[in-house]
Amino acid sequence: MTARFASLKARRALTLYGLLLTPTVFLAFFFLGPLSIMMVYTFLTPGLYGGVEWVFSHLNYGRILGWADTRYDQFDPVYISIFLRSVRLAATTVLTCLVICYPFAFWVARQPERWKNFFIFLITLPFFISLIVRLFAWVLILRPTGFLNQALLGMGVVAQPLDIIFTDMAVVIGMTYVFIPFMFLPLYSSIEKLDGSLIEASQDLGASPLQTFLRVVLPMTLPGIVGGSIIVFIPSLGNFIVPSLLGGARVVMIGNLIEQQFLSARNWPFGAALGMMVMAAVLLLLMIYVRILSREDKQAETQQPKEEETR
């Protein structure tokens, strides 16, 4: 009996290894490997004609953060300012998505069941549509000879074509349009769970609609807001497709800078160091998110017994 049990246990262990072996090797080699090499690259010296020399250098980070190789150039704060602009544009995108989606999610949550599913379908459908096609639509709309300008000129609203494409606004519009489903879904799932009786209670106790919103609705939908904001912020920050199509040469984001370093300037160590800036920002954000989550869990734990007592 024990022998049979032991062999069963061994077979189970064997199955487990069988399941995990190939994926583990693959991911160790092609996912963790590349990330580690990239980190090593940020400390190497760029070769004269592209490529790298295996000599330690801290100047890749220095060029971004404040110390430069004084033999060749002065420190230029341009990289920090492009990084900060990217953060600003990504944050603006998050805010725009949030403001646009919040009332819509509320509206959908109040529809009858069948319509609800239909609207959710309508919002997720663009996810199936190629990103490049969706961006192309906005190039057509925002160009000087584009749809918007033709319409405005035709109606006599403006006398001269508006200069919208190749501005910060065009980039924010493009990113907002592309990332709306990412914001809507988490927002919707927390708004749908909202307990109507709490809102009623708040109003019965004499709170104004604004107070009800700020003190009851907003805190209860906070998980959706924070979750949606993070998954919109991450792809916005390092984006280079949207700024290159809708921002042109005038709106350069950190993603464009990285792309240039890899594909035209061929300074890979510096490009990798710029990439680490994006990575650091994302990690920082996730750490804050985890902190908020764990604090809310604690609050929920401490509040539960109190509620019991007051009942």
Binding site: F30, F31, G33, P34, L35, I37, M38, Y41, I234, P235, L237, G238, N239, F240, G255, I258, E259, F262, W268, G271, A272, G275, V278, M279, V282, L286
Partner: peptide, 18 residues
């Protein structure tokens, strides 16, 4: 979980270097 939260440009350049 990691690849899902990794900005795609980072994975792109890391793979290229690799």
């Amino acid at each position: 979980f990691m690849p899902m939260i990794m900005p795609d440009i980072i994975l792109g350049i890391a793979l290229l270097i690799f």
